Computed example of a mutant assay.
Amino acid sequence: MKSYSTKANANRAAKSQGLELGAFEVIEIDGRFIFQAISSDLFDEAEADAEFQALQERQKELLAITVEAIVGYNPQLLLPAPVPVFNGLTYCPECGIHLNNGYGSDVAHPEGDIYCLACDHVLAKGKLVKSSVDNPVQLVWEIADRLWGARRKDIIAECVRQGVAYNTARTQYQAFYKVKSKEAK
């Protein structure tokens, strides 16, 4: 077996042999280092998959028992097909909550994204491309001056809330900040 002068060289050699970190160990023998594959009988993937499947089945049983205990068993109960609430979605793909519970767009998402109120998952991207106010540059400077000392994110969010396009608010705030920071020196 080949030995290496440093532990790092032995690690590199093991990785070049296709072994992943944790699948080998580096051993020092008389000031030299060798790597040795760790026995794979410590983890049986098939056994782990079987345990996982059994756990999922048990969770389904418990859920059915819980639902029956709360709602009661009613074989005549026919649930209607889910009706899409927003953009073809009925449930949030991230947290699974029904979108009747809420989705929105506000200053938490300055780009105008539509998001789930439960988990903040973005359902639809949206940006205000054109400002809806007259003279948006002046408005950004006024807001930035009024909120000087607040976080950049909050100032830009306020500009977007008042109808300034997101990218205009970012660009103009940066110009404002450059001038304002020079005044303070």
Rank of each mutant, 00 (worst) to 15 (best):
K2Y: 11
E158I: 01
G163T: 02
P136F: 11
I114Y: 12
S131M: 05
A54R: 13
Y166I: 08
L117M: 09
I29F: 08
R32Y: 09
D154I: 05
F43K: 14
Y115F: 14
E51R: 13
D145Y: 09
S16W: 11
C159K: 03
V85W: 05
K180V: 06
S39D: 14
P82M: 02
E57R: 13
A50W: 00
V85T: 11
Q138S: 11
K7N: 09
V129S: 09
N11E: 08
N101F: 14
C92K: 10
F43H: 13
A10C: 07
L42G: 15
E111R: 14
I29S: 12
K180S: 06
T66H: 08
F33G: 07
N11M: 11
S105P: 00
F176S: 01
E47H: 04
A46P: 00
I155C: 05
K182H: 05
T171Y: 10
Q172A: 10
M1I: 04
R151T: 06
W148V: 06
R161C: 03
K130V: 14
E111C: 10
V83G: 01
Q162L: 15
R146N: 07
V85Y: 06
D41L: 06
Q17H: 12
V140L: 01
A69L: 08
K182C: 01
Q76T: 06
A165Y: 09
S3L: 10
E68T: 10
H109K: 15
I38E: 00
D134G: 10
D106A: 03
E68M: 03
D49S: 01
Q36N: 10
S105Y: 03
E28T: 10
I65W: 03
M1H: 12
N87Q: 04
L99I: 02
A169T: 06
F35L: 02
H109L: 10
S39C: 04
I38T: 05
Q17A: 14
H109I: 02
S16G: 05
E142L: 08
A124C: 05
T90N: 06
K153R: 11
I155D: 01
V164S: 06
G149Y: 07
S5M: 12
V179N: 05
Y103L: 01
Q56V: 07
L79E: 08
C95V: 04
N135T: 10
I27F: 04
S5F: 15
Y166R: 07
Q76C: 02
K15A: 06
L128K: 10
S40A: 12
L123N: 05
S39N: 14
A157W: 14
R170Q: 09
I70A: 08
L123W: 11
A14P: 00
V164R: 03
D113Y: 14
Q76S: 12
T66I: 00
E57A: 13
G72M: 02
G72I: 00
L99C: 04
S40Y: 01
T6P: 02
V67P: 00
P75A: 07
F86W: 02
K185N: 07
A144C: 07
F43N: 04
